[in-house]
Design a protein around this nucleic acid. Sequence first.
DNA 1: CTGAAAGCGCTAACAG
DNA 2: CTGTTAGCGCTTTCAG
Lengths: 341, 341
Amino acid sequence: MATVNTTARVTMADVAQAAGVSVATVSKVVNNKDGISPARTAHVRRIIDEMGYAASLGAQSLRSRSTGVLGMLVAEFEPFSTELLKGASRAIKATEYELLAYSGRSHSAPEDGWERRHLARLSGALIDGAVIVTPSGTETIFPVPVVAIDPHLDTDALPTVRCNSYDGAFQATSYLAELGHTKIGYLGGRSDLKSSQERELGYRDALLNAGIAVNDAYIGQGDYLPEASQAPAREILSREDRPTAIFAANDLSAIEVIKVAEELGLNVPRDLSVIGFDNVPEAALFRIPLTTMAQPLGEMGEIALNMLAKIISGEEVETQVLLPVELVVRDSCAPPQHRAQ
Amino acid sequence: MATVNTTARVTMADVAQAAGVSVATVSKVVNNKDGISPARTAHVRRIIDEMGYAASLGAQSLRSRSTGVLGMLVAEFEPFSTELLKGASRAIKATEYELLAYSGRSHSAPEDGWERRHLARLSGALIDGAVIVTPSGTETIFPVPVVAIDPHLDTDALPTVRCNSYDGAFQATSYLAELGHTKIGYLGGRSDLKSSQERELGYRDALLNAGIAVNDAYIGQGDYLPEASQAPAREILSREDRPTAIFAANDLSAIEVIKVAEELGLNVPRDLSVIGFDNVPEAALFRIPLTTMAQPLGEMGEIALNMLAKIISGEEVETQVLLPVELVVRDSCAPPQHRAQ
DNA sequence: CTGAAAGCGCTAACAG
DNA sequence: CTGTTAGCGCTTTCAG
């Protein structure tokens, strides 16, 4: 049975009444302001504990413009963002802050600067600053200090931590070429993100570098999303002259590529090599462990959070952090099979 | 350089002024109340978009007692809770809610009902309900509807989703016994959680069932935490007559056991078999892939969130969900080596 | 040292 | 249909 058993919230007024003091006094005790006698302080504190009182974050921030909580804004809690979150959570222990992760209803307006809305909703109330994961808007100033992870913009206007996507894509594609592949496809990510653009560039340059002509029919776009990757993957792989290898812009779409390939009767890696990007746990856990370009996700989350904390406290920090990626070889790539022309 | 570039927050009053209407009108437009002419509604909406306005969650909830956001309260964002979070995030898409995950500063008061404080801070402002992960308090009624995952209590007072810990522990221990082990240790979890107690019970019963006497010197407690697991693991494994297998109450402590074992010069699985519990991604990813009892973490998060949504909307739901666990065999267990007595 | 009072941004009656 | 008014729970002057 669904019994909704709820108590009334205990407010500061309740505490004040129980303690026989004014709310102002309680407030001062709560916030460790001085000007309250030790005796009263102790008394009020006991009542607070007894009643299990904790200041309402909403009301508190409404008035004081500072809450001691940092936000992590994501479009969704998927493998990429949760790895970042783990890192941020690790980093926050060394600070005085609490961590609040927020994922609004981005499913309504897909790529439309959701972070702006989230931020507007949470800042100036609730959070003192935020790290935003893959923001898609063009905004660069917000109501609170912000650091972005893997942002949209081709600008230094926002403190940012990201990985070298160009280099990673170049490495991944070159790896495929070195394996002997010449027909190498690319399934791109969200075209509004800089990371995605860089990955495509790295892919193209690696091809050129290997003396392979770029074939646009081998290029699709999956928006970094499994759902969106299926159709383009199917299209590329259904061609008579299909590629023998595909570099996918992130692991989740790489996995989707493999699924589509198998539906089409292809064996991975025998008939098709697939390499991903990110190295989320799901990549290693997949039935066919995925070869991928690893980003130090946890570290990125940590760095971003530390950066944010420093920025808020007015410290000087390097605001553009670029981390290296690393090839992780697993089972999804192999030299191409010899096929009849 | 650390330039903190921030704009002022745009408030409802700003919008009202820009639109040449009252805040009440704006409020009604924002909340889709009727009673505003289509023309004005459209006009106000345009201004809102232009200014990038979004209602302050804090102020909004302070007044309306309902925010359309559901909370997920965790002590920390570690592998266990983030897997649950992924599931919850999946489930929330089908609802009208937004998801807010919160991890306060539990490092202050370790096992002391942190969830009460988090909830007090967020509820009655901010969230309409919450799923609480491994709450440690004894409270059963809260200011908002709540569902617990893996709670403390031996009670049905709280809507709960959890796994069959007793059965899982029994299976895990039996597996070790079937492999031929007779000296089987146990590294327990947070003793205040029911899951932990059940796992110890399952361990003991499985031993008895296998005709093995329980040796208390083989039993330690790691609080489900890597840090806390090290010392007891070292103690158990340093004994002259050390066990040849250890069942750890969760994966993270199992991994810690392996690390300690290796420091002590033991080879896993040759000299020591280790089995964990949970099947977080880290278990499979560990250098020595960990054999473990899998909990359907994502599913648990989904179920809990759906339960919460239903409870809030007054629907009848089964409030005590018990999910099965499953043995996942990987590389950390082997039959015991023959050793000289 | 303590309390009264004002007001943060918003919503909910209630008048006009 | 629209604006005025009164708070939500809290912090912060400012008098006592």
